[in-house]
Amino acid sequence: MSHKMTRGKKPLLPQELHPMDQWLRSERMPHIWCAGCGIGPTLYAWVRALDTVGIDKDKVVYVSGIGCCGRGSGYLDVDGFHTTHGRAIPFATGIKLVKPDLCVNVISGDGDIFSIGGNHFIHACRRNVDLLVICTNNFIYGMTGGQLAATTPIGDYSTTTPYGNIEPPFNTPYLADASGAVYVARWTSIHVRLLEKSIAEALRMKGFRYIEVLSPCPVNYGRRNRLREVDDIAKWFWQSSVIRHGADTREVQIEKGKPIILGNFVKREKLSYYGELKKLEEKVKRAAEAKK
């Protein structure tokens, strides 16, 4: 990696340096996430993809909401905005539209993006704002202690569904697809290499790109759902997953006992919101000139 050392602190000796430290506020390590959490590997995959694509670190913006994943923006040595619950996407929209040359990423959890922030998600898809949104979906509210999420599979237990969940979860790739996202993919934090490739592919595109990353939460999800060990969830992801690129997103709902469909599902060409905005400005300018 060719980036300069972490700002504002004494650099570690090279042999003491994990490659990720080039992107970390290392003085803040170890982070708050539990043993086996999927957020760490997801962020590392994202960072490797940024390197692969060759994006200048100073141009990377990381916006997050509230929850476990929300804390990520404070751990990376990039412009990090830890905003309010669910509002990361509109906050990021504001940054991106004012500074279109920045690489603006929203990395947040399923509760943040799909429950409290669900409306912002679908509208940002529809508007096709230039954002990469990565949702680490752990099927639960981790930070608050394991309550039901909009992504908890039917029948699963949480602290607020002590008799099992009766609500169908969102099929988030389908939601993104139907709302107009130009790139939709799903991976897990165990499929890190493929996730990295997918993120790199998304980083090379413009418009609203969405990647769902299934992420183990052994402490607050696994413990209550017979997936106590980190390895249990890793095995579930590994053994039940089927990679089907281009799959019909209507058919990728996650159900216990059925295969988890992974892959890069949607890739479409569409002028981004900023592109449309520039076109509009041009039109207004021409009309004004014609008037003269």
Binding site: H18, P30, P41, R48, S189
Partner: peptide, 13 residues
């Protein structure tokens, strides 16, 4: 490098 990329803690490389 699987240990490195999968480690949630950036502890092993």
């Amino acid at each position: 490098g699987i240990c490195e990329v999968a480690c949630p803690e950036y502890a092993i490389w």
